[in-house]
Design a binder for these strands. Structure first.
Length: 293
DNA sequence: ATACAGGCTCGCC
DNA sequence: GGCGAGCCTGTA
């Protein structure tokens, strides 16, 4: 393989790909293989450089958001213990720029699923309905377009283990394929208008809409609140409060974390997910089980 | 085995 | 308009 060198200071490839933003990159040789849009890419990290086999270095730079001023963004985080711990843990984690449809579709399938499950569904959809791309000695499959998914049946999607998500994905694919939901045109909308449009799609609520805004539409204020973040916020920012409503959390996040709230969220999220000891989770589950007997 | 996951939606109050 | 239950499936 003949690899191209791409300068990538303040970037950690593995950390970024393992932070729950995207669900299809595979470890390959010393790096990762995946697709950027329709193009197969191999990329590995060597210190502050990437070595890539890709059609275009610009696409790689853009996808991994190497232009984001990461040190400035991190320096502007609120100065509190939870945030500082997350910042130190997540050095080089970037919010990437994904294709709109792929990101939207992936997060529609993510509801009530762990990362491992989401990856399986993504793989099944790609292998059945995507287009094959070969890179080095590896066969990859692109994420099927909305038009392609709009052609298949709910049963086909259920065979990809989507369960009740099949109906939502199909419904949204049809709206996008028909042009009724024009994802590209929505780029010009304000955050609030964009969120409202996204939430009008089947299978998309506030959480999924905020993920798509953050990971595809480059809305760096967007702050998805899932069960992990909710736990972190309640423990670290509302420790003494008894009752914290969803709306209170929402208002707090939007005002406290500010302009780059999405980055703050991703750092808090990843830190919590990777440092919460497994045995604590198990113990909590076991305790609940015993209590219910 | 069986509870539970990185939610959305609908029906009930 | 807030709250709870149901929805599918793979994993621990």
């Amino acid at each position: 393989m003949k690899l191209e060198r791409i300068g990538a200071p303040n970037f950690d490839l593995e950390l970024t790909l393992d932070s729950g933003q995207t669900f299809h990159w595979e470890r390959y040789r010393g790096g990762f293989a995946g697709l950027i849009g329709d193009r197969a890419v191999y990329v590995e990290q060597q210190g502050s450089e990437l070595r890539a086999l890709a059609g275009s270095a610009r696409e790689v730079q853009r996808y991994f958001a190497l232009d984001h001023p990461l040190p400035d963004i991190c320096a502007a985080f609120p100065d509190d213990p939870a945030m500082c711990a997350a910042r130190d843990y997540c050095l080089g984690l970037r919010i990437i720029r994904q294709p709109l449809w792929e990101c939207l579709a992936s997060f529609i399938t993510s509801s009530m699923k762990q990362v491992a499950h989401i990856r399986q569904m993504s793989r099944a959809l790609r292998q059945r309905f995507g287009e094959q791309r070969v890179i080095d000695e590896l066969e990859l499959y692109s994420f099927p377009s909305a038009a392609r998914i709009a052609q298949v049946t709910e049963k086909d999607l259920r065979e990809c283990a989507l369960g009740y998500r099949a109906k939502n994905l199909l419904g949204t694919a049809r709206l996008v394929a028909s042009g009724e939901a024009d994802l590209e045109a929505w780029r010009v909308l304000s955050d609030d208008e964009l969120r409202a449009r996204l939430c009008s799609l089947p299978g998309v609520g506030a959480k999924v809409a905020n993920c798509v805004m953050l990971f595809a539409y480059e809305r760096l204020r967007a702050f998805p609140i899932d069960v992990w973040i909710e736990r972190v916020l309640k423990e670290r920012y509302f420790a003494r409060k008894r009752k914290v409503t969803a709306q209170k959390l929402r208002e707090f996040c939007d005002s406290y974390f500010g302009e780059h709230g999405g980055y703050a969220q991703q750092y808090l999220f990843h830190h919590a997910r990777k440092t919460t000891p497994r045995r604590v989770k198990k113990r909590a589950a076991g305790k609940a089980a015993r209590l219910s007997q």
